[in-house]
């Protein structure tokens, strides 16, 4: 097993863990963390897998920087929305509120 394949496999494992978390965990912040873990997995695959003349390929390194910026932007947006959502509804999950809860909420 080469080092690059090891990186890629580790990335895939991270991706899988994140995917599980994103789908199964109800709490929004946990979902967000899971998304970030998935993102790290993808970046690891991206940096680790490609080989350039026997060494690491420099291009993906540059791309991953962009990818990280995008992921941070997405995380920031998600945090803002979650905070606002928590303020309005007092909820930390995406479940539909039951009918008797709906009219008031916490404002």
């Amino acid at each position: 097993m080469t080092a690059s394949l090891l990186y890629a496999l580790a990335g895939a494992v991270l991706f899988g863990m994140g995917l599980y978390g994103l789908l199964r965990l109800p709490h929004l912040l946990r979902k967000l963390l899971a998304f970030n873990i998935m993102g790290s997995g993808v970046f690891l695959v991206m940096v680790g897998l490609p080989q350039h003349r026997g060494g690491a390929d420099p291009i993906p390194q540059a791309l991953v920087l962009t990818g990280i910026v995008v992921a941070i932007a997405a995380t920031a947006l998600a945090v803002v929305l979650m905070r606002r959502y928590y303020h309005l509804s007092g909820m930390t999950t995406l479940e539909e509120p039951s009918p008797e809860q709906r009219p008031g909420g916490r404002r």
């Binding site: 991706f15 929004l28 993808v42 695959v45 991206m46 897998l49 997405a74 929305l81 606002r84 959502y85």
Partner: peptide
């Protein structure tokens, strides 16, 4: 609150989709 719930749901779905796409891109590269 309902709009925020919908937008969060949308955000998570969109991010998941993007990451799956990006993983594909990484493999292809």
């Amino acid at each position: 609150a309902a709009a925020l719930r919908a937008s969060l749901r949308y955000l998570l779905a969109a991010l998941l989709g993007s990451l799956a796409y990006l993983l594909g891109v990484a493999l292809l590269y």
